[in-house]
């Protein structure tokens, strides 16, 4: 049984079909990269995996360890060990990062994270490796955060929640080269047989830092290419057009 499997997934937002039969299998402990042009459905896929209410799944299935996620509310998917690092994390004014982290960790673990003091001590250690200052903890959640700060906080959450499956949705967007190195380092430390990763990105530079085992290209709501890590450079060199041509009329018309 694969750790994570997407079978012929179809989804739409309103009347507009976006995913048109996505198939993807990831074995436990593997890292897969998903690339594709703007509007190909990458973010839709990550939202559908997490159960965003705006998207309607019209066919297919998403299986995590053999269990379908589709009937489950978002919070239960999270409790099973599914994590999404958001491309645009939303601000929740007035809710401190410290309070949010404790609430989230307790919700996912299903038990108290102990006293605030002990909990925050652990959080501070994790923050050091992401080069975050302690002042972060008292700030409103994503309130007035720079792009880089938001992304670091996403990875901090990932480190605290210890998911079995993490989807990183364009975690590299809006990051300068130093921040990118820190964030990628924070992810790489977690890699191993306990973490299955789906890294969604536009750019090769992230995949140089988080090296995938497999690469897929999503176009017009379908996976049109799958290959080994060496394909990253080929894509960087040739762009997406040759795939578009290869995928042929059906996709373009679809």
């Amino acid at each position: 049984m694969a750790e994570f499997e997407i079978r012929d997934l179809q989804a739409r937002i309103g009347e507009k079909p976006i995913l048109q039969g996505v198939n993807l299998t990831i074995e436990r402990g593997e890292t897969h990269a998903l690339m594709g042009p703007n509007g190909s459905g990458k973010s839709t896929l990550s939202n559908v995996i997490m159960g965003h209410p705006d998207y309607e799944v019209t066919g297919g299935d998403i299986l995590f360890r053999g269990q379908s996620l589709l009937g489950l509310p978002t919070e239960e998917r999270a409790r099973l060990g599914v994590f999404l690092a958001f491309q645009y994390p939303v601000a929740v004014p007035g809710v401190s990062v410290a309070r949010f982290l404790k609430t989230a960790v307790e919700a996912v673990r299903g038990k108290s994270a102990g006293g605030a003091g002990g909990f925050l001590k652990g959080v501070r250690e994790q923050m050091k490796s992401l080069e975050m200052t302690e002042a972060f903890l008292d700030r409103g959640l994503n309130e007035g955060f720079s792009g880089g700060e938001k992304k670091r906080l996403e990875i901090l959450q990932m480190r605290l929640l210890k998911p079995a499956l993490a989807v990183l949705d364009e975690t590299d967007s809006g990051l300068d080269i130093d921040a990118l190195r820190i964030v990628a380092g924070g992810v790489n430390q977690l890699r191993g047989s306990d973490l299955t990763l789906l890294v969604i990105t536009h750019y090769e530079r992230l995949l140089k830092l988080i090296q995938p085992d497999h690469l897929h290209v999503l176009m017009e709501g379908r996976i049109v290419f799958s290959g080994g890590p060496e394909a990253v450079q080929e894509l960087e060199r040739r762009g997406y057009d040759w795939l578009r041509e290869q995928a042929g009329e059906a996709v373009v018309a679809g």
Binding site: M50, A78, L84, T103, A107, L161
Partner: peptide
């Protein structure tokens, strides 16, 4: 909806 989705994606139920 986006705030709720974000918090729920961290295991927090809708009420909380």
């Amino acid at each position: 909806e986006e705030q709720l989705f974000y918090l729920r994606s961290r295991g927090i139920d809708e009420e909380t």
